[in-house]
Design a protein around this nucleic acid. Sequence first.
DNA 1: GCGGGGTTGTTGTAGAATCAACTACCTGCC
DNA 2: GGCAGGTAGTTGATTCTACAACAACCCCGC
Lengths: 164, 164
Amino acid sequence: MSPTHEPRWLTPEELRAWLRLQAVVELLPATLDAQLGRDSGLTHYEYLLLAMLSETPGRTLRMSQLASATNATLPRLSHVVKRLEARGLVTRHPCTDDRRATLARLTDAGWDTVVASAPGHVETVRRHVMDVLTPAQVEQLSTIAAAVGRSLDPEGRLYALTGD
Amino acid sequence: MSPTHEPRWLTPEELRAWLRLQAVVELLPATLDAQLGRDSGLTHYEYLLLAMLSETPGRTLRMSQLASATNATLPRLSHVVKRLEARGLVTRHPCTDDRRATLARLTDAGWDTVVASAPGHVETVRRHVMDVLTPAQVEQLSTIAAAVGRSLDPEGRLYALTGD
DNA sequence: GCGGGGTTGTTGTAGAATCAACTACCTGCC
DNA sequence: GGCAGGTAGTTGATTCTACAACAACCCCGC
């Protein structure tokens, strides 16, 4: 921090927007985790991981790619994949091209889990987000989240932002 | 994904908005935690807690009120306050009116911590959120976050949504 | 006043995220 | 060839969170 630099405070409108955003950021993961945990025994992050693999040709991705795709750090991903492997939802294979790399592949059981979990998860997203917004607001949200996401991830390696 | 019966799936626009929102929800807390932890030795949640107390007349709040104000559960709050008390930033007092209740009060050291941390925190919020949006988008965000927040917290006991 | 039922808050513990090493590997350069 | 420096991933220790049980207390009806 530069100590002599006077910070620009937030305007009342900005402060209100910030407090509301903060509430969403705090409550949304808790809500998703609760629904997925109750109905499918999955964490929100675990679901996201499996879903990303399920949408990839070959259902296989390098750890580093999977980390980017799920907005996570490599250490975190490593632990989660290890747990999912122990549960038989994912397998790990060494990569022949680059022997440092590890490939994570979705098993049939993992696929079945995603397929079984998706409807309930989508329904939750719909109820708490999409259904309370107008189509115009969904577009606004998309634009706003893209802008904020870019500033949070300057390297722009996020899968989720594909389509800019 | 091809389950036999999909409920109401997301449209392409909704899916894109959802993936982007998901990225923000994942990355924003990490960014705030990193900045506050590095510069002030605080968690984002700890900062929020101290900030809420600092804005209250008497710098004192009941645990249950503080939990609502920070969008947290009571058990979580209890643990965090215990840690902050051990660090001398907060004190706990029994409430004379209702002897079940506990009052949390910000100490002078806690106040100093908030004052010292606020500029860096605000600067981070500004850089990653406000400065990448137009004033109109800030208003849109405010409206959208309020709607989503209400659906996530049906009982509407959130401090953060005050001002609807 | 005295139980029953609903609050208010704390604690213990088990699960998950974070951070800092550390290993193994690749690439480029001498 | 062999070494320096960077990349990929894993592991272990610590910290934080969530969930469930629990204790203390208020309030209301009788």
